[in-house]
Design a protein around this nucleic acid. Structure first.
Lengths: 147, 147
DNA sequence: ATTATTCGTAACTATTATTGTTACATGAAA
DNA sequence: TTTCATGTAACAATAATAGTTACGAATAAT
C-alpha cells in the first residue's frame, strides 16, 4: 500500500520557506517538492485554514508563515492536514455484531491507541524551529544543496 | 485512505477456529468474515507458511492450528501476514537528494520508529490464548451470538 | 484601466493497492 | 470415481491519492 506523504511533503515545503524571507509561490514549492502547484495549494490550504501560514495573490504573492516557527509544532501541522488516520492496519468493521470480532477490535484498537499517543506526543514536542535548527546543523557538514 | 484490515480479519478467523475442535473450511471462515473463500485462503497462506496453521484438503479438510494458542503471539501473526508497513504516513522519497528533505525524513522517521516499537511490543506480549480468554470473559456477560 | 501574476477550486484523468470473483488444477477422503 | 477442499493464476471492481487542465478571483505593476 502506498504511504501518505503529505506530512513529510508539507514539512519539506515549510523548511524551504523558513530558509527564505520573501513569500514562495506554489510554483516555487512545487519545484522543490517535485510536484504540481495545484497539489501544493491543496495541501497548504489546510495550514492556511489553521492559521499556520498565509497566502497572498498577485505580484509578490505566495506563501509565508503566520506566526513564529517556534510556536508551530509538528502536531499543529499534522492536525491541520486533516489526517486523523495514522495506521494502515485497523479493524475491518467499526461496530461489529460478532462478539469475537468485538474482542479482536478491542485488543488491536488499544495497542494502536497507545502507539498513536506516543507518536502524537513526539509531534507535539517538536517545533518547526527545532526542525530548522536540526537542518542547519546537518547542513554544516555536507554542502547545503537544497532542492 | 482505506485501512488494511487483514490483521483484524485473520484474528477474527483464528478466534472462530479456536472455538471449535474440527477444522474449518475456507468457506466457513469466509461466512464468518463476510468475504470470499479465496480471500481467506490468500490471507491464511502466510500463516501456513509460518507454521502457525495447517490446511487439509478433501473431505474433513480445512484449517486448524499447528501449535498451541499460548505459543502464538499477535506479533507472529502480524509478521506472517507479511505487512511490515504499519503507518499510512511516511516519507515521500526514501533517499532524497535534498538536505532539507533528509532532515524532515529523519525527524518523522524517528518518531514513527518509536511508535512502531511500542506497537510491536504490545503485539509480542499478547497471545491467541490471551485473546481467546478475553473473548470468553466478555461473552459471559452478553449472550455469545458469534457470527 | 489594463496586464501580468498568483491563489482558489472544480472537474477530470492516471496510478496504485486492495478486495472480490471466476476458473481450473491438485490432492484427499468417502 | 466422485465429491470435497485447498492452491493459485487471472481478471474485474472498488477506492484513495496524486497529477493535470481549466477557469475564476484578487492583487500589484504598468
Amino acid at each position: 500500500m502506498k504511504r501518505n506523504s503529505r506530512l513529510s511533503a508539507v514539512l519539506h515545503a515549510l523548511m524551504h520557506m523558513a530558509e527564505r524571507k520573501e513569500p514562495m509561490t506554489s510554483d516555487d514549492l512545487a519545484r522543490c517538492l517535485d510536484t504540481n502547484a495545484v497539489v501544493v495549494r491543496r495541501t497548504m490550504a489546510g495550514l492556511r485554514d489553521a492559521g499556520i501560514v498565509q497566502s497572498g495573490r498577485g505580484h509578490g504573492g505566495g506563501w509565508h508563515f503566520a506566526r513564529p516557527l517556534a510556536e508551530i509544532s509538528l502536531l499543529d501541522i499534522y492536525n491541520a492536514l486533516g489526517e486523523p488516520i495514522v495506521f494502515q492496519i485497523g479493524p475491518a468493521t467499526e461496530m461489529p455484531g460478532c462478539v469475537v470480532e468485538q474482542s479482536v477490535n478491542r485488543v488491536i484498537g488499544d495497542a494502536l491507541k497507545d502507539a498513536e499517543a506516543i507518536l502524537m506526543a513526539r509531534f507535539a514536542g517538536s517545533t518547526l524551529a527545532d526542525l530548522a535548527a536540526d537542518f542547519r546543523a546537518a547542513a554544516k557538514h555536507c554542502r547545503a544543496d537544497t532542492g
